[in-house]
Write a protein that binds this DNA or RNA. Sequence first.
DNA 1: CTGGACGGTGGAGTACTGTCCAGGGTCAAG
DNA 2: CTTGACCCTGGACAGTACTCCACCGTCCAG
Lengths: 117, 117
Amino acid sequence: MRIGELAERTGLSRDTLRFYERTGLLVSRRLPNGYRDFPPEAEPWLRYVRTAQALGFSLAEIARTGAELSAAPDAAERLSELFREKIALIDARTAELAALRADLAGRVGTGCPLAPA
Amino acid sequence: MRIGELAERTGLSRDTLRFYERTGLLVSRRLPNGYRDFPPEAEPWLRYVRTAQALGFSLAEIARTGAELSAAPDAAERLSELFREKIALIDARTAELAALRADLAGRVGTGCPLAPA
DNA sequence: CTGGACGGTGGAGTACTGTCCAGGGTCAAG
DNA sequence: CTTGACCCTGGACAGTACTCCACCGTCCAG
């Protein structure tokens, strides 16, 4: 698939996709005319990238696990493992948010809401 | 309180505090010798800044609400309101994370974990 | 065979959030 | 009066994640 189609499917700009390729986050073959040719997996991969990014990972970190992944013989199992790690991270993040929420809720309506918790 | 003390109390660097002041996130008086003199409220305020930052607000946005706040006659009530807004945001964020978690959990162990959800 | 959509490259620029440094002033203790 | 801890300023630099641009090639429809 060429860059325009991938851009439309993922909602990312062409420039962003080229940028991702430069940083190793995305790979492509080249067509005889020099155009990039992305595999169909690029689309779900980019969805995953968004997820990881939303969890606070930098593009460099995501690229690193991506590279590690394509080198692994048991890629599917490794990826499942990554997903489990991300789930644990989400649970931790959720707990942090709950604590923050409790802290803020406790301050609502106090005379001096900026006082130390 | 001088910058060194505030830095130590908040765990931020002096440079970061000066940077925050430049961007309007923090205000200070000056001592006769030119040293910054921060009010005691600076410390809880910076804790609040951290919270807002963790929720994804940019420093500029935080500075804006801060300025608005100190201009408001009913500062305490306005701040309580801000807290309630942040709580709503936390709830939304938590829901997003739950959806993300469900998505990932559904993909764990599938033969092709990168396939569209 | 020309126009327009699409693709390529290299490089500059942007916004944000700091971090570091040189050069210099302030102040209290010894 | 010197030393050391602390403070000041202005400005350069860094990392992240894009975004935009000029200039050029490719390809297909009419």
